[in-house]
Write a protein that binds this DNA or RNA. Structure first.
Length: 921
RNA sequence: GCUCGGAUGGUGGAAUUGGUAGACACGUUGGACUUAAAAUCCAAUGGACAUUGCGUCCGUGCGGGUUCAAGUCCCGCUCCGAGUACCA
């Protein structure tokens, strides 16, 4: 039989489905291994060749681990909530669930054709009530928890209520919002409403007033990238900063643990660094500056308490609570105008116009805590309300932003650290010796920081403080297509539903738009209230809600009583290998870790970090093709001649270009405009130009996997995607090279077949040469898979098949183990050959061949002999010669004489089994 | 600006610990087979010089350095990619 991949692949895909080959259950007799892919959002466009890259790699690894005796959990599911389906629903009125269902079906078909070893019994979809029941449930748990800095973990709110009842708030060290201290008596005297208000400041899922980009015309909150120049990208309506009541998750409570956990995981340095920057820990001090006119102090955060004597002014953010309090009458108008202007700017604008220095004087002064001098308080939008206290002490000599501000508004600049020329620019480095700083003079920066903190602590005007850049995650969306919050309101206070009332299913609505009053779409639902008649929350959860804990649900996906059973978590523990795109570095991968740490505190999961090893697959870029039209004509000129004319470069569909040569007839048919096209050719061909760009429909460079599978088969596609290059590297897709892999597949097939294409294997004993090829390859493949070097693995197969072909080897003793080696990469052909060899069970169950070093032992080593570092010739020598013997043999060798002639030997370096280098002069 | 990656033939890439640079493919060229094409097979293929052969020199973004030996280590640059952005 010919290598008929279409028949073979169909046959085995059916077999796997029918036999449930990849179904996996807890099996205490085997070690577990959990391989996870980042689950996809099922978009309407389907998969392109870039999507399966990571899935193929993880599939190879999963299959390999199975051959190695592991019980492998390798599931797949869908991140099914998302904006595109909702937008489509708004446009067409079709329920997003229907769109999503259709898209998922298409995704599963496409995935099925590539031959993945997913256990589809464990599929999860975030939009499935049986799944989001547990997303909602975790939310209720977060709502009922607070974070104790003392025990460094989440504790229950009822415990906190007990503490308040007994001791008041004084001794509670919690990650919380701003709360005024109260005594036990005061607590007991409060009414339920007041108590709930206070508890809200402690909950890990809490409601607070948060500034958002509100677009009244669209009736929704927009993300930063949905706003441009103060207008909505969609529709161009005005957008304003508005404070709204929003649910948030107190991710910041876990900042330190999120940072510490990075030391325990096997992730790339760049990814860990990204997370560290995102968490943004900075160590410094909080310092209170007394106000001149009030018996009150302004709190600031600084990382440079050593430069306190250089503080010549203070700045508060335009949103700061004390703007009114600090503004004197004379400045009133100016301040109001400035604050209004600052508020009209979106965060994005403020970011992009970094260089613009703006600000206004309040007219008030603070008192310098050390020198007692008056220093002016300004308002400027380079100070952000969201970080630190929204107020700073400005040290223009040693901070470039303060410097620019002081220069513009003519504020004194006092140098307090030696080094740098203050007349030109600020000196920000943390190096030098203190000056102009009274008791700190002469100290190094490092020592001065300590001394300054000691002093402010003694004076009771501040203390050491750690700040994080990380912000709590806003968890509310005014959208339809997301998880409903399991929350109802009683007398205006939010309460969560009990587990018996979950899932709270997404209700039907007549339209997927906000109401006329500007409420979110859920407000349109009929009877959107509890049994008791209390109104339910109308916001929904964001995209990252469902993806934060999906890896846990795969462990026990059908459990209707629990998120997952204790047996399941005790067996599967955590994800051993996680493969996905780097775009989730700071979103999903922070939220998931937070989610997991919370569940860890609850005693529900057994590992504090969910993802042991993580690999970021690179992007597959497109390779666009171009034609060159002479401007104003319908004449097209070939690539090499394009500079002789005034041309316009036009993207052309890569499907009508082969090896940069344009299919002219297909081009004419491609678009009506080109039907009458004329061509100026080179050597009778139209050569296209090319460039690497992102893969996109609009650039006509999208390669769809279905077409390639149709033409070459899934095994070839799998091999080729791996052969393209290292998994973590971005690389252009180029269909050309797939032919080489396809040739290899047929060559491999031919090893098992004679000239007439009959399946023939010999049972003769394998020769030493054949065994050497096999075992060399076993070692190489094993090593390459273990270090995730899948591209070199493919070339090792090619080398082995080339060598076995040269040896005319068709021996079962070699080809049987070889089939197992290749099975993780090319499972269909491996199954087919395996069954032709007479096996009745799937090759999936076969044990990985064991490497035997005896078969690859060499008697000789071909020494490269260098003179002054330049390789001149090779000399075959017995492998066990000593250094001295090698040296002797090399110097005696005929080829050496030419290089030694008339020279003195200065040194001879012999590295056994590596190299010989002779230094002559 | 800051942080993290990266740069090797015409192309994708290999070289795992400092030890033969360019594995394996693609493409190209030539040849075999064929009426012809496809498929297949064989050979050549980093550059320059020399081609009568042995060959010789140069070569991993650029400039230095360490070393018997550098694609790999160190210092200084250039360019490209990703992330982030007034974080006090």
């Amino acid at each position: 039989m010919e290598y008929n991949f279409q028949v073979i692949e169909q046959k085995w895909q059916n077999y796997w489905t029918k036999q449930q080959t990849y179904r996996v259950e807890i099996d205490e007799s085997k070690p577990k291994y959990y391989v996870l892919d980042m689950f996809p959002y099922p978009s309407g466009a389907g998969l392109h060749v870039g999507h399966p890259l990571g899935y193929i790699a993880s599939d190879i690894y999963s299959r390999y681990k199975r051959h190695k005796g592991f019980n492998v959990l390798h599931p797949m599911g869908f991140d099914a909530y998302g904006l595109p389906a909702e937008q489509y629903a708004i446009k067409t009125g079709q329920h997003p669930a229907i769109t999503t269902e259709v898209n998922i079906k298409r995704y599963k078909e496409q995935l099925g054709k590539i031959g993945f070893s997913f256990d589809w019994n464990r599929e999860v979809r975030t939009s499935d009530p049986n799944y989001y029941k547990w997303t909602q449930w975790v939310f209720t748990k977060l709502f009922s928890s607070w974070y104790s800095n003392g025990s460094k973990k989440a504790e229950s709110i009822s415990m906190l209520e007990q503490i308040f009842k007994l001791n008041g708030s004084k001794k509670v060290d919690a990650a919380c919002g701003e709360v005024k201290n109260f005594t036990a008596e005061e607590w007991k005297a409060m009414d339920k409403y007041q108590q709930q208000e206070i508890l809200m400041n402690y909950r890990l899922a809490y409601q607070s007033n948060t500034a958002v980009n509100w677009c009244p015309a669209l009736g929704t909150v927009l993300a930063n990238d949905e706003v441009k120049d103060g207008l909505s990208v969609r529709g161009g309506y005005p957008v304003e900063r508005k404070v709204m009541k929003q649910w948030s998750l107190r991710v910041t409570a876990y900042a330190q643990r999120l940072l510490d956990g990075l030391d325990q995981v096997d992730w790339s340095d760049s990814l860990k660094e990204m997370q560290r920057n995102w968490i943004g820990k900075s160590v410094g001090a909080k310092v209170f500056f007394k106000l001149e006119k009030y018996n009150d102090s302004l709190e600031v955060f600084t990382t440079r308490p050593d430069t306190l004597y250089g503080a010549t002014f203070m700045v508060i953010a335009p949103e700061h609570d004390w703007v009114n309090k600090l503004t004197i009458d004379k400045q009133q108008q100016e301040v109001e105008a400035y604050v209004k202007w600052a508020k009209s700017r979106t965060e994005r604008e403020r970011m992009t116009e970094v260089k613009k220095v703006t600000g206004v004087f309040t007219g008030s002064y603070a008192i310098h805590p050390f020198s007692g001098e008056k220093i002016p308080i300004w308002i400027a939008d380079y100070v952000l309300m969201g970080y630190g206290t929204g107020a700073i002490m400005a040290v223009p000599a040693h901070d470039n932003r303060d410097y620019a501000f002081a220069k513009k508004f003519d504020i004194p600049i006092i140098q307090v650290v030696s080094g740098g020329d203050i007349s030109e620019e600020s000196y920000d480095a943390k190096e030098g010796v203190l000056m102009n700083s009274a008791f700190l003079n002469g100290l190094s920066v490092k020592k001065a920081i300590g001394a300054a903190i000691l002093k402010i602590t003694k004076l009771g005007i501040g203390e050491k403080k750690i700040n994080f850049r990380l912000r709590d995650a806003i968890f509310s969306r005014q959208r339809y297509w997301g998880e409903p919050f399991p929350v109802y309101y009683k007398e205006g206070m939010p309460y969560v539903l009990s587990i018996n009332d979950l899932p709270l299913e997404l209700p039907a609505v007549d339209k997927y738009l906000p109401t006329e009053k500007g409420e979110p779409p859920l407000a349109r639902a009929k009877n959107w209230k509890t049994k008791e008649g209390y109104p339910l929350e109308v916001d929904t959860m964001p995209g990252f809600a469902g993806s934060s804990g999906y890896y846990l649900r795969y462990m026990d996906p059908q459990n209707s009583k629990q998120y997952f059973s204790p047996q399941a978590i005790n067996y599967w523990q955590d994800v051993d290998l996680y493969i996905g795109g780097a775009e989730h570095a700071t979103g999903h991968l922070i939220y998931s870790r937070f989610w997991n740490k919370f569940l860890y505190d609850m005693g529900m999961v057994v590992k504090e970090e969910p993802f042991k090893k993580l690999i970021n697959q690179g992007m597959i870029q497109g390779r666009s093709s171009f034609v060159y039209r002479i401007k104003g004509t319908s004449k097209f000129v070939s690539f090499g001649l394009r500079n002789k004319y005034d041309t316009q470069r036009i993207h052309v569909d890569i499907n009508i270009v082969d090896n940069d040569i344009l299919d002219i007839e297909a081009f004419k048919k491609w678009q009506p405009d080109f039907a009458e096209a004329e061509f100026i050719l080179e050597e009778g061909k139209y050569i296209c130009g090319h460039e690497v760009e992102k893969m996109s429909k609009s650039l006509y460079n999208v390669q769809n996997p279905d077409e390639l599978i149709e033409k070459y088969g899934a095994d070839t596609l799998r091999l080729y995607e791996m052969f393209l290059g290292p998994i973590e590297q971005s690389k252009p897709w180029d269909t050309k090279g797939i032919e080489g892999v396809y040739r290899f597949m047929r060559k491999f097939w031919k090893l098992f077949h004679n000239k007439d294409n009959d399946f023939v294997l010999s049972d003769e004993k394998a020769t030493a040469a054949e065994l050497k090829v096999l075992h060399k390859t076993i070692a190489k493949i094993e090593n390459d898979i273990e270090r995730f070097s899948f591209n070199t693995g493919v070339s090792a197969f090619m080398i082995a098949v080339n060598e076995l072909s040269d040896l005319k080897c068709n021996k079962r003793a070699i080809l049987e183990p070889f089939s197992i080696l290749i099975a993780p990469y090319a499972p269909h052909i491996a199954e087919e050959l395996w069954s032709l060899m007479g096996h009745e069970q799937s090759i999936t169950l076969a044990e990985f061949p064991v490497f035997n070093a005896d078969f690859v032992k060499e008697n000789d080593f071909s020494y490269p002999v260098s003179f002054n570092g330049k390789m001149r010739f090779k000399l075959n020598l017995p492998i066990d010669l000593s250094k001295e013997e090698v040296e002797k043999a090399v110097l005696k060798a005929e080829e050496s004489q030419k290089w030694l002639q008339g020279k003195t030997i200065r040194k001879v370096i012999v590295v056994p089994k590596r190299i010989v280098n002779i230094v002559v002069g």
